[in-house]
Computed example of a mutant assay.
Amino acid sequence: MLKPVKEVGGFFAMSLDAFVAIFKRPFALREFIFQTWFVAKVSLLPTMMLSIPFCVLVVFMINILLGEIGATDASGAGAALGTVNQIGPIVTVVVVAGAGATAMCADLGARTIREELDAMRVLGIDPIQRLVVPRILAATLVALMLNAIVTMVGLVGCFFFSVYVQHVTPGAFAASLTLLVGLPEIIVAMVKAMLFGLAASLIACYKGVTVGGGAQGVGNAVNETVVYTFMALFVINVLATAVGLKLAPQ
């Protein structure tokens, strides 16, 4: 009973330390650039490959429904709403959690069991400031950029599928894109993507710096990172969507 409470407390304590360390100097700029490039490199192609089938599946079902009621000209509105509000942020965090966050956890876990973090503390170097903060900021930034890429790629894929497979009029599809989606919805989607990336990186870093039990412990920490990140995804998605609907009603 006490272990889960202790884990939650330790997670929030590390998160608070990380947020405080963001504003401390010196900032590990080189590590931040390296981690940003690494996460983007391992996440970009899987994100683009996942976004197209997800978006096409959604627009396929929406177009069938719209066709039944004779409103296929509004298919662009459904595609934009699904892609911007849900598919973009969710596909982004799935890839970031499955590729970037697990790599972060494995790297920090290996450093922990080799006692590198203890050695840094002995030398007066804060591991949170030097290692955790750059990874958190990198994952958050990459999640924001990947969300924009998913949205653009998904909408292009929806356009070609709707026009050339389901025979929707191109002009009607393009004209209806902004019926339900505007700047407020885009901002909400970007904020959701940033929150997803932030949560995934915090969970990965916490599991990495608190790992124990040798190599087996690192493997368990990586698995737990994926599971906990997906659990956090659903909670954050529900809360952010509810708040977004209040702030940007349709």
Rank of each mutant, 00 (worst) to 15 (best):
L146Y: 05
A110S: 15
S176E: 07
V227S: 13
V238P: 01
E7T: 01
T241C: 01
L146R: 04
V211L: 08
I87V: 12
G67I: 01
G208N: 10
A189C: 12
G78D: 05
L180T: 01
I186M: 14
G78W: 07
A110C: 07
A172I: 09
A193M: 08
V235I: 15
F32A: 10
V8R: 04
T225F: 08
N63M: 11
L198H: 04
G124C: 08
K207Q: 13
C105P: 09
I87T: 05
H167A: 14
G217W: 04
F54V: 03
T151M: 14
T83R: 03
A139E: 01
V168H: 00
K246R: 08
T178S: 11
R130Q: 11
V93G: 02
T169K: 08
S75F: 06
T229K: 01
F32S: 03
F12Q: 04
V243Q: 00
P249G: 08
N85Y: 06
P46E: 11
G212C: 02
I52R: 00
L45A: 13
A189T: 00
F173A: 10
V227L: 15
E185K: 15
L155Y: 10
F54H: 01
M194E: 04
L16I: 12
A139T: 14
A18W: 09
L146C: 06
R114K: 12
G124N: 06
A99N: 12
G88T: 06
V84E: 02
Q35W: 11
V96D: 00
V218G: 03
S75Q: 01
G98N: 10
A21E: 14
V142C: 11
V222E: 03
A200D: 08
A242T: 02
F161R: 10
V56E: 11
V222N: 07
L177I: 09
F196P: 00
L44C: 10
A18G: 02
A80W: 03
L247T: 01
L245W: 00
D118S: 05
C55T: 15
K3L: 14
R121C: 02
P249H: 03
L233H: 06
M231G: 13
C55H: 06
Y164A: 13
I187E: 04
L183E: 08
A74E: 09
T140R: 00
V163D: 13
A77C: 02
L141A: 15
I113L: 12
T36R: 04
I64F: 13
F60P: 00
K207E: 15
E31I: 10
V58P: 00
D107A: 15
I186R: 07
M145E: 06
D17T: 00
A40K: 05
L239I: 15
S51E: 05
C105D: 09
A200V: 04
A80M: 12
L245Q: 11
